[in-house]
């Protein structure tokens, strides 16, 4: 509607026609949207496959460690700006062999900056696409990739390449074990 004070009669009827036709056209547009597919992804229960599988390759989810290729160099621990990662390297008193006695990542602290992933020489520490791990006990978020008492021999570049586990499977196992045991 024009708000000019000098309204000619022609303009007056033109205004009415414009208002009526544009309203009709607008209604036709909105009505056609009732027949279109909504773009909403109804996470978590009304989707075809789990969202973790459809997220992009470079998603920064929780960190996991492929201990089979971890060299125990502590580069990730040093790269972490907020001390999320704690690694204990120990030495067998008789054979003088080093082994990883502890590899903990505190997912409650982690801010997903990815500096540890960049620092890792072998790609042992990596992001998964896992993101939904709300819990009522913060201890559940302490992810231990080396169990208590387990002695993991560090990987040496000369060693043959071991079989690697699928991305996300290690972190998922650890999380699920935590939720079962500590709840």
């Amino acid at each position: 509607m024009s708000s000019s004070t000098n309204l000619t009669l022609g303009q007056y009827f033109k205004n009415i026609q414009n208002a009526a036709l544009s309203t009709l056209e607008g209604m036709a547009v909105t009505f056609s949207w009732l027949f279109r597919r909504p773009i909403t992804i109804q996470w978590p229960d009304k989707i075809e496959k789990p969202l973790e599988e459809t997220l992009p390759e470079r998603t920064r989810g929780i960190l996991e460690v492929e201990t089979r290729i971890c060299t125990g160099c502590l580069a990730c621990q040093k790269a972490c700006p907020i001390d999320t990662i704690s690694i204990d390297m120990e030495r067998n008193a008789e054979t003088k062999e080093r082994f990883i006695a502890r590899f903990d990542i505190d997912a409650a602290k982690c801010m997903y900056c990815g500096l540890c992933v960049d620092a890792c020489p072998t790609g042992a520490i990596r992001h998964t696409t896992l993101f939904a791990y709300a819990t009522d006990n913060i201890d559940n978020l302490l992810l231990s990739y080396v169990d208590k008492g387990e002695k993991v021999t560090p990987f040496r570049p000369k060693d043959p390449q071991p079989e690697l586990r699928a991305r996300g499977s290690i972190g998922k196992n650890v999380l699920e074990r935590n939720l079962k045991s500590k709840n």
Binding site: W33, L34, P38, T40, Q42
Partner: peptide, 10 residues
């Protein structure tokens, strides 16, 4: 519900 569908939501 109608508003949702008009806005491509659910």
């Amino acid at each position: 519900r109608i508003a949702g569908r008009i806005m491509a939501r659910v």
